[in-house]
């Protein structure tokens, strides 16, 4: 590889083409982020002018709000279990749909469908699928002699139920994997076959490294996204039963818009920011060990 030479043209080009994003950042994005950081040190009700209270919000959050901890736990649970499952399933489906099967276009569309149907519309359907008495899942389990759990009505099973629901939303990740798979050159497979590699070896030594930048992207985004989940619980369980699906951002939302306590919500947001930031930095640091960039 040729040693990189700092090149004026390269730098100028970079600054020109990054300019729109730089402007976007500074006009639309950085300001609100900094304001929210300031609000986290203030008593801010949105309607009335904010008042500085130092670390008051943070103190309350750590010492006086059991729901803060509960919601943090709920959200970490979803992230630790949900994100890997989601990625593995999306990858499997993408691999399957990349096999030049007949009706490929149709199947790809079908697997993307649940991501298209509005959430409100299918929440009704989920109530049925997850219903302990007449629902589809427990019916299927009963065929194997298993008595299905109470799902959304149960404190232990409500979160797993949400993870299962989330699996129907792999369409987006599948699309990204499908795009990623197109960047795996066919000649690498051909070479592997010549070397006598079996399916698993081909996946392990060709597909996986070539896809690793995509997987890395989905892992980082999955963590960022799942730590902020909110909508489904809002529509389907209102955080219940017994706060089992009260996710972090749901609690934050309650504080911000139901209790007019935006200062507190901002403090929560910044604590979450720090968690996500650390997780992302760890990801970035670990990346060189397993992510393979053709470019470098």
């Amino acid at each position: 590889m040729t040693k990189f030479k700092r090149n004026k043209e390269e730098i100028i080009t970079a600054y020109i083409i990054i300019l729109p994003w730089l402007l976007g950042l500074s006009i639309f994005i950085v300001g609100p982020i900094i304001s929210s950081l300031m609000f986290s040190f203030m008593d801010y009700s949105i309607v009335l002018p904010p008042k500085f209270i130092g670390l008051g919000n943070y103190k309350r959050m750590f010492l006086n709000d059991p729901l803060f901890w509960k919601s943090l736990y709920n959200t970490l649970y979803m992230t630790v279990i949900g994100v890997p499952l989601n990625i593995v399933l999306a990858l499997s489906v993408a691999l399957l749909l990349n096999q030049k099967l007949k009706g490929e276009a149709l199947f790809r569309t079908i697997f993307y469908l649940p991501s298209v149907v509005p959430q409100v519309a299918i929440s009704l359907l989920w109530m049925w699928i997850l219903n302990p008495q007449v629902g589809l899942i427990n019916y299927l389990l009963s065929l194997f002699g298993i008595k299905g759990p109470m799902w959304l009505a149960s404190e232990q099973w409500a979160k797993p139920a949400f993870i299962i629901m989330g699996l129907w939303g792999i369409g987006g990740n599948m699309v990204i994997f499908l795009a990623g798979l197109q960047n795996v050159p066919q000649h690498l497979y051909d070479a592997a076959i010549v070397d006598g590699a079996n399916i698993w070896q081909r996946f392990r030594y060709v597909t996986f490294p070539m896809l690793s930048p995509t997987i890395f992207f989905l892992l980082v985004m999955g963590i960022i996204g799942t730590l902020q989940i909110f909508t489904q619980a809002y529509i389907m369980t209102a955080g219940g039963p017994m706060d089992a699906t009260l996710f972090y951002v749901y609690h934050l939302f309650n504080k911000a818009f139901r209790d007019f306590h935006m200062g507190y919500a901002s403090a929560m947001a910044w604590f979450l920011f720090i968690i996500i930031f650390i997780a992302t930095i760890i990801n970035l640091k670990l990346a060189p060990k397993w992510v393979y960039y053709e470019s470098e």
Binding site: L124, M127, L130, A153
Partner: peptide, 14 residues
């Protein structure tokens, strides 16, 4: 118990 009642409630849809 409430879990049973809630499970039954789920059979009504939304």
């Amino acid at each position: 118990g409430v879990e049973k009642a809630a499970a039954f409630k789920g059979t009504w849809g939304i």
